[in-house]
Design a protein around this nucleic acid. Structure first.
Length: 592
DNA sequence: TAACGAAGCGCG
DNA sequence: AAAGCGCGCTTCGTTA
């Protein structure tokens, strides 16, 4: 039976910390809060699990935990560290191991919540029972709260031991485990400090944007007024039909045509205006931008609509969102270290990785006074890695001699450069004959022949992709040079389509996963070095790019140093081809 | 009213 | 019958 004890006096908490420091054995720490927001919600308690059992520390005494010196184990430590930091309890100098990160390294396909991990390894469902009984944590009586928190911490500690041996057994290198943790620590800094937002500029851009959108919508309406009014009339009639009473009918407002509704838009374009119907690959009728591009010139509304859509996305997705999420001119994004199956990170609230790279939106993010942004990205990283893995003769020429991949493909296949470019992306992601036919604008037979010419140009690449497929068939997963494994297997009951889908992921996972780890490791080194030198800070990576914020007098130094660090990552995994990096620097806003 | 999937689109 | 990898966010429209 697990001992769970609530410490009610400051002296008890203090003695516990002394005791734990003296023992210097790993302990698990888990916080309970009223919610997930470290700004809005408050701390309820902190549970600590050690060899003696679990101890519950009340929020009012939690500050003593900052003097802990023993190794810590947490499940999703970024959450606990950030939350405690905002409550004035700074643990960020304390190293730790994270059972969520470890679990992800073990199996990227599983969910990684503590709940799921406990179910998987210990089969205890106390969490489910708890949440079925109480709606919020505070609803539970104190002893139920303590039992829940105590078990969470205790299981985290047990989980750590289980995961340690599992990682060893699976052949996940300890170096990779360390790299992932160090990277998470670097991202924690950015999450805590945030990135400065130019609120004035957001408002300016937003206003201009809004004015243009309103003008566009007015013109759009006028360009097909009759059809729109017909649709509105029918929508109105349908709404009236739904209401039974006269009073209900009277309350119905005449609907206004909604340009954002794909249903209404399809009705307008294809039924009322009689434009040629466009279909997606899945043979569904669509009016996405690709479809609209085909209709360009056939009706004046198309051109306006495409612009309106783009502006609307920027307005709602990036400007309004930024204003809502900023606090005193600072944006606090979240980074999910195990948000992907390949080893890339994902970002949210906001997703800084999906900010439009053109159109000036990135300029809303600004450097701190006296600092500048520097961005460094790997030049054609995926092609370089494909050359390394496949040792394909032509890919090696591209990487070593600086010959253009797209030119080479255009020559080998016999098509225009722009199509060759699309082809290169498509084929490394596993596109089939149909997609190739679409790209080249030809029939299936011709696509087949073009495909043959493509693989004749890059025979080594073809052989490597085939090898990836073979690894999938063997069912052992694909391990990249850092030791991260992508577990892919074709289910026994899979049909040909499903099987092909799994195989498509294989090659891409190796390339994408290696590229991400390369970038993240380089980023971590920058972050640590910049911090030690007091030159500023590293902000975040974007898949194959690193963004840092540096005191302006060190911009030249860091522009060169970033490149050194990033290129050197290739040597550390014995890459057989050189990495190349391009640096853009010295901007006071994030815009290149 | 909330929860959810689909469509559409931004990034690498 | 389908046929391009990995993400997150907003809006719409349907369902519980």
């Amino acid at each position: 039976m697990l001992l769970i004890k609530r410490l009610t006096s400051e002296a008890d908490v203090y003695s516990l910390v002394l005791l734990l420091n003296k023992a210097d054995a790993p302990i698990a720490l888990d916080i309970e809060t009223t919610g997930l927001s470290s700004f809005k919600d408050s701390l309820i308690s902190v549970a600590i699990a050690c060899h003696l059992g679990s101890f519950i520390i009340e929020a009012r005494h939690a500050k003593h935990l900052a003097s802990l010196k023993c190794p810590l184990i947490l499940h999703n430590f970024k959450f606990d560290y950030t939350f405690l930091y905002r409550k004035g309890i700074d643990l960020t100098h304390l190293d730790c191991r994270d059972t969520m990160l470890m679990h992800h390294l073990l199996d990227e396909n599983q969910p990684h919540s503590l709940d799921h991990c406990i179910q998987q390894y210990f089969g205890d469902n106390y969490k489910e029972v708890f949440w079925n009984t109480y709606k919020t944590f505070e609803d539970a009586p104190e002893d139920a709260q303590d039992r829940y928190a105590g078990l969470d911490a205790d299981y985290t500690l047990k989980l750590y031991n289980v995961l340690c041996s599992a990682l060893k057994e699976e052949g996940i290198p300890n170096a990779l485990v360390k790299q992932v943790h160090a990277f998470a620590f670097a991202m924690l800094d950015t999450e805590i400090q945030g990135v400065n937002l130019d609120v004035k500029r957001v408002k300016e851009l937003g206003l201009n944007n809004r004015i243009r959108i309103l003008k566009l919508e007015k013109d759009m309406r006028e360009s097909c007024l009759q059809a729109i009014e017909t649709i509105e009339g029918e929508l109105y009639a349908r709404e009236l039909d739904k209401r039974k009473t006269d009073k209900g009918k009277a309350a119905v407002r005449r609907p206004v045509f909604n340009w954002g509704s794909s249903q209404q838009l399809q009705d307008l374009l294809y039924n009322r205006l009689g434009l040629p119907r466009q279909f997606s690959i899945l043979r569904k009728q669509t009016c996405d931008d690709n479809a609209l591009s085909k209709l360009e010139g056939q009706h004046p509304v198309i051109e306006l609509l495409r612009e309106q859509r783009a502006l609307d996305k920027v307005f709602n997705g990036f400007l309004v969102a930024a204003l809502e999420q900023q606090k005193d001119g600072v944006i606090y994004p979240s980074f999910n270290i195990n948000g992907t199956v390949t080893g890339r990170i994902s970002a949210s609230n906001p997703n800084l990785q999906q900010l439009p790279s053109s159109g000036g939106i990135r300029s809303i993010y600004i450097s701190r006074p006296g600092h500048s942004f520097i961005s460094a990205d790997y030049k054609q990283l995926e092609v370089t890695l494909a050359a390394h893995f496949s040792m394909d003769k032509n890919l090696l020429r591209v990487v070593n001699e600086g010959i253009s991949l797209h030119d080479l493909t255009a020559e080998g296949v016999g098509c225009e450069r722009t199509r060759a470019k699309t082809l290169n992306f498509a084929l490394t992601y596993g596109a089939g004959t149909k997609k190739v036919a679409k790209i080249l604008g030809c029939n299936l037979q011709e696509a087949e022949r073009a495909l043959a010419r493509y693989w004749r140009t890059y025979p080594g690449l073809k052989a490597f992709i085939d090898r990836c497929h073979k690894w999938v068939d063997l069912g052992r997963g694909l391990q990249n040079p850092f030791g991260r494994i992508r577990h892919l297997h074709i289910p026994a009951d899979a049909d040909a389509y499903e099987a092909a889908g799994v195989k498509r992921q294989a090659f891409n996972s190796v390339i994408q996963g290696t590229g991400a780890q390369l970038t993240n490791n380089a980023f971590t080194k920058m972050a640590e070095e910049i911090k030690i030198k007091g030159h500023g800070r590293a902000l975040f990576p974007i898949h194959d790019e690193c963004l840092i914020e540096i005191k302006t007098e060190y911009v030249d130094y860091w522009a060169a140093r970033m490149k050194e660090i990033m290129v050197n990552e290739g040597h550390l995994i014995a890459l057989r081809v050189p990495l190349d990096v391009s640096v853009t620097g010295g901007m006071h806003s994030w815009e290149d």
